[in-house]
Design a binder for these strands. Sequence first.
DNA 1: ATTTAGTACGTAAGCGGTTACGTAACTCGG
DNA 2: CCGAGTTACGTAACCGCTTACGTACTAAAT
Lengths: 328, 328
Amino acid sequence: MQNASGYSSATRDRVLAIAAEIGWLPSGSARSLAKRRSGIVGVLFPDLDAGGDAEAESPLYVDQVIRGAERAATAAGDALLIAATRGSSGHDLAMSVAGKVDGLVIVARALPDDDVASLGRRLPVVVLSDRSGRRTNVDSVSVDNRGGMRALTEHVVHEHGLRRVGFVGGPRVSPDSQERFAGYREALRTAKLPVPRTPDVIGDFTDAGGARAARKLLDRGELPEAIVCGNDEMALGVLRTLIAAKVRVPADVAVTGFDNLAVADHLRPPLTTVGQPMRDLGAAAVHAVLTRLGSEDATRQSVVLPTRLVVRRSCGCRTTALNGRKTA
Amino acid sequence: MQNASGYSSATRDRVLAIAAEIGWLPSGSARSLAKRRSGIVGVLFPDLDAGGDAEAESPLYVDQVIRGAERAATAAGDALLIAATRGSSGHDLAMSVAGKVDGLVIVARALPDDDVASLGRRLPVVVLSDRSGRRTNVDSVSVDNRGGMRALTEHVVHEHGLRRVGFVGGPRVSPDSQERFAGYREALRTAKLPVPRTPDVIGDFTDAGGARAARKLLDRGELPEAIVCGNDEMALGVLRTLIAAKVRVPADVAVTGFDNLAVADHLRPPLTTVGQPMRDLGAAAVHAVLTRLGSEDATRQSVVLPTRLVVRRSCGCRTTALNGRKTA
DNA sequence: ATTTAGTACGTAAGCGGTTACGTAACTCGG
DNA sequence: CCGAGTTACGTAACCGCTTACGTACTAAAT
């Protein structure tokens, strides 16, 4: 035996040459059937803005996660299968995908808990940005939403001395949204400021939702000194609406976001926000799946990635000295 | 026979119930081996900015293409496999992917022509934004880069009466880049203006490359009246650099882009550019693959999607009246 | 020269579904 | 009550590869 294949190099080379010549392709189906391993990991994510514009979409969070996952998978010699759940169409899609892959990454709330749990019993499953992992007993990867938002709110309160800080929240059901609001409350509590039970306004994590939220705040008469938004997209809408209403940002009111989308740095004023390692998130999730595939260890893993405060101008700062401080 | 399955409903339901109860998942490998159809279409794309920042990436073109492809695939009951080629690693990756899918979408220049051609002989292949389809005899889908850039340049020349119009080109090898420059030249020729053989400056389609290009133009002393950029990202860098150098845009010099990224609308001034239906591109490619899978028609198909002029402020306009005019 | 070990290749049994067919039961008209 | 036609289910081959094992052959040891 001259090499791993069990055939002599001469024979092997000859066969390979002919194979290439006639354009032979090994059948992935047959191979994976025999090896009981498809070499594919799947990503299931929710398709938001399903009705949206066909072009000029925002640099969606999930796109970055997918890119990171793709890199990790390809680096490991696997391929990445992606599928978006829309509305209630999730179950069948998930079953179909689950049959084709070795393991599954489930982003945010792409699938109901009980589906996640039952899939978790059949193959390695990792949930992303979703604390339901504890309930469903599958691995999870998330970012430090709470710590990031706490750091940001503390910055606004301490560095800028603002005391009337409003919060524009994301969808109530979003775990990210809940955690961010929790971080905001922690910062207020620490600062001995009044701690609201609910966000001042609830948005839907979109630009348009942010605009609506800002209009609501304007209609209430008295604006807070700062508006902390649950994500960058809503901050975009808030910013636009305030400026259109002749409110000066940050002179009259500070505005902050969360995510650090590419666009944040190009706004006027540049948006102070919290950066999260979106690609690393995807990569970490794929890693977790692959690790689980290799070992028999049954203990549930849970990794939390750090976020970092990205200070720009919209909070009132003229410096960027604090950039890059990790929160976890 | 009471339904398509060939078994009575009673039996069928009973089996299905038990299957669900014990968490049975049909094996995709076995199924696809037997049916000779995996229900997966693959997308191969080049991973640019492979060394880039881990977060806050720009809303890359290919992300949108992938989202469009995903929608089309899922709608057709298929799944989407994605893999990025980096540098020369393409061949093996492509073969591995090709074995697992029913058809393949190859974005831009993710793979050398001869690999594309040989894959095209084994399974349905569609190339995207790449005129090599003609050479390699596979289907292709692209956008009207030339017409879009012609319309944009004509706008700058006719509406604003600018005669010294510079061009910041993308990579010489990029088909998109070449076509856009060709459209620019067509517009100049029609306007009886001098037609340059090469772009004034060559960039690499990145923000940083745009900044370098702008600096080069500034160093040459005399700026043109307008700077037409090969894509939005370069326009970003150009804009930033000009403004930092106290050049007023568009008063002193007009600047335009191409792609209509989400960020374009948030710049100061908002960027006049050409919009291309990135998601539709991906969807059209998947459709083409699926169609080819169904029929035996061997004639090469080639679809070209329209682009549209998106007029904002950076060209000197104060109106948006011309928005949305299709170019093809 | 004959055994022994080791290498190189042939062979057949799956992997888990699908498909094509065969057979048993059941329907119905005459 | 019987045979033709229909319906419902069993059965086995097969998809294309992997794996395990068996056999032929070569080289070194007795």
